[in-house]
Each structure stands twice: as structure tokens, then as C-alpha cells.
Design a protein around this nucleic acid. Structure first.
Lengths: 132, 132
DNA sequence: ATAGCTGCAAACGGTTTGCCTCACA
DNA sequence: TGTGAGGCAAACCGTTTGCAGCTAT
């Protein structure tokens, strides 16, 4: 565990849900010379060690979070806002997919896409902000 | 509706679930000069017209399919295989998210991530093929 | 004349690669 | 003294942008 690695881990624990770029910025506050390459390599390592997890909130860069802080994300593809709900909302679905398709669902890894309450209200008016 | 646009639409209808690159290749079989830029612009147009839809099967490029051929995708983040299940498996979840969070789920837009039956069997042996 | 579609090339964001150097066991 | 961690620059993939030329009104 080198200083850089510790800094990356600290940043992930600290920020919760940060992209590699954001983590890099955070690390560079205390160690400006650290390169983004190192961030990527270290995140990969920490993930294999089971210390962090990443998930996809749609389009852009993935988001890294400490292992154990799991929730299901709901992203609105009109306004881009992200909501978090409990993974056990998907428990039943997981069971069902396991039974029917032999598929072990990882509910927290990818966000569910849809339309948030606000955008549903203003429905049809405009077009999505992000290509989703 | 220009010739290029017709060719792109034909390619989508033809291929079902193709990436922009694949669509480009298909179009170029009959019109080699067509540029990938035109593919992107046209797909965007066709999508706004409601003729095609795109969905995300994980990491890479999105996949375009004809409007109406909807299913929920299950991608295995070990071996990358994609299974398709009926959207009405998620119907109940959709209802629930609508009630609880005011969120209108678009179940077909993003694939669900997890482990397929084969990889679950060989579990823990190796590491994921794709970073998911 | 004018709108707008097309092609090309260049830029972009996010990520990975190769290589060379350094530190440390 | 050799293995591997880090930095840097360059390549990479997928996508978007700016611009100029063409075509069909």
C-alpha cells in the first residue's frame, strides 16, 4: 500500500460516488504530482481487492464508491437527476430472474433509467438533456 | 428522407441491435462514401422521429433497434453474453417505483447487470472479461 | 437565393498502453 | 539487483463539432 494508493482509497471513502476525474482532483489537493493513470490503475486494484465498487449512472464516467454503501440508482434521462432507493425493492425481481433465467442480478451496478416525477409532470414539453 | 437516411433506417431494421459502427459498415456495403458522422446524425434524427430506439448493453457503444422490438437485456459482466427477457417481468417493479418514488421506469433502455448461469457455475474462478 | 444535408477533419471525453525511471525489498 | 509502482506522452474508442461544398428547392 503506497502513499498514492492510500490517497486514492481515502478519496473514495471521502467523496462517495465520485468519478475518476473527481477522485484525481481530490488526491491532487494533497499530492499534485499524482497522475490520472495512477488513479485508474489504483481504482482497478482496489476494486479487485473488494475495497471499492463502481457503478454506472448513465452516459458518462463511472462512479466509484466504498464497498458496502450500496443502493439502486434511478436516473432521469430528461433532467439527469439521480435518486437512490433501497436494493431490496429489486429483491423479488432478483429472485425471479434467478429462478427463470439462472441470472444473478447485481442490482446496484447499473442505474435504472426513466423519468423522474418532476419531468413526468412537465411531460413531452422538451427533449432529453442528456442523450442518456 | 434522403438516400442516406433511408439506408440507415434500412440497416437498423435489418440488423436489429447494432452499434453505430456496425450500421455504418452495413450502409457502406451499398454506399461506401457515407460517413460515420452522417450515421450518428441520422440515428439521432430517426430516434427523435420515434422510428428507432437505442439501448445500453453495458460498457461500449449503444445498440440501435427498430421501435417496437423491445425487451429487457441481461448482460453478464463476466463473459459479456446478453440474454433477453420480457419487459413485463419488470412491470411490478415499475408500478412500485411509480408509486413510491414517482419514477416512471424505462425498463428496456438500460441492460440489467449480473452473472449468467454458466459463469455462476464457474464462480469466483477468474475475473471479469469486460470491466462492465 | 436559400435552406439544409453531407463529407471531411479536427476536437472532444474517458480510458488504456508503452516505455522509461525510480524506489524499495 | 530485480520486481513492480509511478509518471508522462501517445494512442485509443466512441462521439461531436466546425466548416465548406453540394443539392434540391
Amino acid at each position: 500500500m503506497t502513499p498514492q494508493r492510500q490517497l486514492v482509497l481515502d478519496a473514495v471513502l471521502d467523496l462517495e460516488h465520485a468519478t475518476p476525474e473527481q477522485i484525481c482532483a481530490q488526491v491532487q489537493l494533497s499530492a499534485p504530482a499524482v497522475n490520472i493513470t495512477t488513479i485508474y490503475r489504483t481504482l482497478d486494484l482496489l476494486e479487485r481487492l473488494g475495497l471499492v465498487r463502481h457503478n454506472h449512472l448513465g452516459h458518462g464516467a463511472p462512479s466509484y464508491s466504498p464497498q458496502g454503501h450500496e443502493h439502486v440508482h434511478l436516473v432521469c434521462h430528461w433532467c439527469g437527476t439521480v435518486a437512490e432507493v433501497s436494493p431490496n425493492l429489486l429483491h423479488e425481481l432478483g429472485e425471479r430472474l434467478g429462478r427463470d433465467a439462472g441470472f444473478q442480478l447485481d442490482a446496484t451496478h447499473v442505474a435504472l433509467s426513466g423519468t423522474c416525477a418532476d419531468c413526468a409532470r412537465a411531460e413531452g414539453a422538451s427533449s432529453p438533456q442528456d442523450g442518456s
